[in-house]
C-alpha cells in the first residue's frame, strides 16, 4: 500500500509529466489559456491514460512478451491507443452524451499526445505490476491536471502584463513555465522522506 501511495505522489509532484519530464508540452502550452478548457483537456487526458494503460499493459505482458514480439511495442501501442480513443469517442457519443459533450472535443487531440504513449511505455519500462501501472497512470494524469490548472492561472495574469515586444506570446509563456517548474523542484526528496 505504501508503495502505491509513493508511486502516486511521485507521479503527481516529483516526476510531473509536463514540468519535469517534458511530455505533453503541446497541450500544456496550447490549451492552458482558459481554466475551463484546461480542465476539460486534463480530465480527458486522465481518462485516456487510464484506459490506455488498462489495455496496453495486458497486451505487452500476455501477448507480446510470451511470443518474443517486444520489438513491436511502439507500433502496437500507438495503434491501440489511436483505435481506442476513436472507439471511446463513439461509445461516449452514443451512450453518455453528457460526458461526450465535456470531453469529446479533446479526445481526438490526445491520440498523438506524447504523454499518453509515454505513460504506457514507462509503465512497462519501470516493471510495474498491473495495479502499480494503473496508479502510476492516475498519478501522471493528476500531475498533468495540476500543472494545467496552475498554469492557466499564471497565464491569465500574463495577459494584462506589460512585457517587451519580442517576448510577447510564446517566449514569456515558456519563461513562466520555467518558474512554475522551478517551484515544483521544491517537492524533490519530500515524498521519499515522508514514508521513510
Amino acid at each position: 500500500m505504501t508503495k502505491l501511495i509513493i508511486i502516486l505522489l511521485s507521479a503527481v509532484f516529483i516526476n510531473n509529466y509536463v514540468l519535469n519530464r517534458f511530455l505533453g508540452i503541446c497541450p500544456f502550452l496550447g490549451v492552458s489559456k482558459k481554466l475551463d478548457s484546461a480542465t476539460g483537456m486534463s480530465l480527458a487526458v486522465i481518462f485516456v491514460m487510464l484506459i490506455a494503460t488498462a489495455v496496453t499493459w495486458p497486451i505487452q505482458m500476455y501477448l507480446l512478451e510470451p511470443n518474443n514480439l517486444g520489438y513491436l511495442q511502439t507500433i502496437v501501442f500507438i495503434l491501440v491507443i489511436a483505435a481506442l480513443v476513436q472507439l471511446v469517442e463513439i461509445v461516449l457519443k452514443k451512450y453518455v452524451p453528457a460526458l461526450h459533450k465535456g470531453l469529446g472535443v479533446y479526445l481526438p487531440l490526445i491520440t498523438t499526445n506524447c504523454a499518453v504513449l509515454g505513460v504506457t511505455i514507462l509503465n512497462i519500462d519501470e516493471g510495474y505490476t498491473f495495479l502499480e501501472a494503473m496508479v502510476n497512470s492516475l498519478g501522471s494524469g493528476l500531475g498533468f491536471f495540476l500543472a494545467m490548472v496552475m498554469f492557466s492561472g499564471v497565464r491569465s495574469k500574463l495577459e494584462g502584463a506589460d512585457i517587451p515586444k519580442s517576448f510577447k506570446g510564446l517566449p514569456i509563456t515558456l519563461i513562466a513555465a520555467s518558474i512554475t517548474s522551478l517551484s515544483f523542484m521544491g517537492f524533490g526528496g519530500v515524498i521519499e522522506n515522508l514514508f521513510a
Binding site: 510577447k168 515558456l174 523542484m185
Partner: peptide
C-alpha cells in the same frame, strides 16, 4: 539549474524571443 527542467523552458523561451 540550466541543465534541469526549468532551465530548458527558460533557454527555449529566450531563443524564441531572440528569433522574434
Amino acid at each position: 539549474i540550466l541543465t534541469m527542467a526549468p532551465g530548458g523552458f527558460f533557454v527555449f523561451g529566450l531563443l524564441i524571443a531572440i528569433v522574434n
